[in-house]
Nucleic acid binder design. Structure first.
Lengths: 219, 219
DNA sequence: GGCTGGATGGCACGATCGTGCGACGGGCAG
DNA sequence: CTGCCCGTCGCACGATCGTGCCATCCAGCC
């Protein structure tokens, strides 16, 4: 989606000065990114949040003096709700990372995976992704699938599959053009499908359709 | 982790014969893997499951003649519960893939990401991982973190009363002008409130705001 | 063969929306 | 007194949407 700013402002919270400087150098060398904050503790970053504009991305080490990274995550989330946090760690501890991710991390990078992957991960997060290794993904999925969420999906309105596809994407906040791109069809076609959805749901705006669909759990 | 067999038996369900043969060649060229089943429809694979030993891994195309890959997933899961399914698709449609993953897929590969990644993904799945792109991971996390823990939503976005009023009317299908009339204020004022709602909910359309509000039960 | 429904694509128009830029008064905390 | 938040109102611009009316293609059904 649209990047409200031309420069992605990255902060780094990392107590190892040597590694920290390397990361800063790498980030500053990337197109459209600037590492404007370097901190050696979570507390220092909290203090800074009250005084300067919040960053877009926070690279957060797990092992920190004082409050550790995972504890700090929740605080960052409330102090800078728009900032997305990427966990930075030396340990490939699925359980720890899993909890971090559940606490609101947008991804994580293993230090051992190489500094050059940091830029890639940041880009993925900026674009709405959540970079993580397959092991973490599996952990998340396991916990996820334990809570069976059976959809009731009452097919009373007789929407076609395609219409439901599009309605779903609409409810995800996409606009028609984006839906068209995603489904690799013309925006006109999306319009055609939507007008039928409107007619079947007896609404006349996309907002009304999404509201009705969500309330009646047909998507 | 489970090394009950020396050879990982892979099946491929893919209607594009050309691509299918390429994949089979690649898989058969990998150490400890054999592609012993190639099918051009889910139904054909179901039939085979009654006659030969089930595979360890099923590479499953989404776009298939007859039953599509996502529908087929559930059937595979009951016919061959030990087989792990990797979705194979040309489309990077997070929403669809997300539902596939929820339906029991162990991972997915974009065809566009290159045939050479298939072996890597299979290995990750055999080792208990769940390869997926950052976008899918994010979708999973979003849904996950909604169910987990938080019902703090109401306080968390810090919408003012007036903003909630307007959000509610929006979800009832009213357009801005109608909301303005109902509340006896100017349409400009409605716009001002809404732009703050968008910012607080991190969306950029009224549809996105309503969807988020309904899903997180803040209205 | 003909018919129907679903999915696709197109054009044009006015209506509606999102957003950047303001403004003002009232209330409340420091 | 001085901020700061909230609610109110305004304008202008481009982006997006809803809709009337159109066409083509394909699969399934009678």
């Amino acid at each position: 989606m649209p990047l409200h700013s031309t420069i992605t402002n990255v902060w780094l919270v990392e107590d190892n000065a040597l590694f920290g400087r390397s990361v800063q150098r790498v980030v500053n060398g990337l197109d459209g990114m600037a590492c404007e904050g370097g901190f050696t503790s979570a507390e220092a970053a909290f203090a800074a949040l009250g005084q300067v504009p919040p960053p877009d991305i926070i690279l957060l080490d797990v092992q920190l003096p004082g409050m550790n990274g995972i504890e700090a995550l929740a605080t960052f989330r409330s102090l800078a709700p728009d900032a997305r946090v990427i966990i930075l760690t030396v340990f490939d501890d699925p359980d720890k990372i899993f909890r971090a991710v559940c606490a609101g991390a947008s991804g994580y990078i293993l230090k051992s995976s190489g500094i050059e992957h940091i830029g890639q991960a940041i880009k993925q997060v900026v674009e709405g992704g959540a970079p993580m290794t397959p092991e973490i993904a599996q952990r998340v999925l396991d916990t996820f699938s334990q809570k069976e969420s059976n959809q009731i999906s009452i097919d009373d309105y007789q929407l076609t599959e395609r219409e439901i596809d599009i309605l779903r994407l609409l409810a995800d906040g996409l606009v028609k053009k984006e839906i068209a791109d995603r489904l690799e069809i013309s925006a006109h076609t999306v319009s055609t499908h939507l007008r039928r959805v409107y007619s079947k749901l007896h609404v006349s705006t996309n907002t009304g359709a999404v509201a009705k669909a969500l309330r009646e759990r047909i998507i």
